[in-house]
Design a protein around this nucleic acid. Structure first.
Lengths: 199, 199
DNA sequence: AATGTATAAGAACGACCATTCTATAAATAG
DNA sequence: CTATTTATAGAATGGTCGTTCTTATACATT
């Protein structure tokens, strides 16, 4: 006898994620969410409990649907440095499609806006950073494998964390500039620095 | 006949700046500002006009009182790379004093939270980034001067912009981690990469 | 066709917010 | 002392927000 699940309900999370991602937590109102998702107020509350919970679910959804496939690139079979470059190009291609200024990285945005005030969000952000750091480390060690070098190896653990930290800056910039080439330039320089250090 | 300017009024801007810096625009209420600054509601409105204008004035105050002295380090007489390292150490020392997680960079925070929704703020943020980029470029060219190198020079304009972009990530992280050594590690790796590329 | 449930639409509520306004005190100038 | 200006304290206002509640509708099962 139950009425079947509507299509709008299935798209609730992706649509909510997009709003929070683009506009942030505080600027996005429940009214915005109702209008953008096509789901009634009551539906959102019965499915998620409230705005804060929906935000957390959106962040989880981002990690699964957007971040995870990107991180997977770092585990691909290619040589280490090429995988790192592909990781960045993957995100940049997304911003090329959407136009600038872009939404940046939902997780990086949340780190700045709500992380310091919400322990749960902060934990999710840190978990993502740790995942990303581990993936960078794998790729870096593959790059080390083919190094013929002269100078001493860098500290790869620190270098992996550096890549995580540094790339957050790129996503911040993507939100504030219309100059798309800034993103490409960042990757060019980053790869140049890595190659100079590891070659 | 006029009543003299009170001390609390003079500290209005520094106190407001601190609140916006630590908590962001939306989380900071006029009530918070009244309590933290000791200035009556009416005083804030007659001096600045409203919350949005006070925020902009706070951002300007940050550029003058916090950012400008830091940027000045990049113009100091020391060799280029040492000036760049000193710039980062200066900000890190501030976070060491305050404890972690720290406030990050007020401008970087604003870039993420309000930049995309407020054209005036976005222009201020971009102006700061441009100043910082120019200062990094000067320091880099001083570093180039002493290079004895083998490989071709990097593109210094792009490299300066890379430093601006990358460092925004550092300030984001300062807001979300209690691990103070992450900041130091970032600078160690960054300097290591620069030295390997320019030496 | 009748029933029961899940949904939509939006009214209603209480809290909070930015802003304005009023009343009052403090301090200087004449 | 009086007048004037500047400040404080906080009440009042109007709007918006998140949340809850009510009513009506659509649909699958019986």
């Amino acid at each position: 006898m139950p009425r079947p699940r509507l299509e709008s309900r299935e798209k609730l999370l992706p649509n909510a994620m997009r709003l929070f991602w683009e506009n942030g937590y505080h600027v996005t109102s429940m009214d915005d969410l109702v209008k953008a998702t096509g789901v009634a107020r009551g539906g959102i509350y019965s499915d998620f409990g409230g705005k804060a919970e929906l935000f957390r679910a959106s962040l989880d959804h981002y990690r699964e649907e957007i971040a995870a496939p990107a991180i997977a690139i770092l585990y691909s079979e290619q040589a280490g440095l090429e995988a790192i470059e592909a990781y960045f190009q993957h995100f940049i291609a997304m911003h090329k499609k959407r136009g600038m200024p872009g939404p940046g990285c939902f997780i990086a945005n949340s780190m700045t806006e709500v992380g310091p005030h919400e322990a749960v969000v902060q934990a999710m952000v840190n978990a993502h950073s740790e995942e990303l750091r581990a993936a960078f480390l794998i790729a870096l060690e593959r790059a080390k494998g083919v190094s013929k070098t002269g100078i001493s190896h860098p500290n790869f653990d620190e270098l992996a964390q550096f890549l995580v930290t540094s790339s957050q800056g790129l996503w911040s910039y993507a939100r504030s500039t219309t100059d798309f080439s800034l993103l490409e330039s960042y990757v060019r320089i980053l790869m140049d620095l890595l190659r100079a250090r590891l070659a």
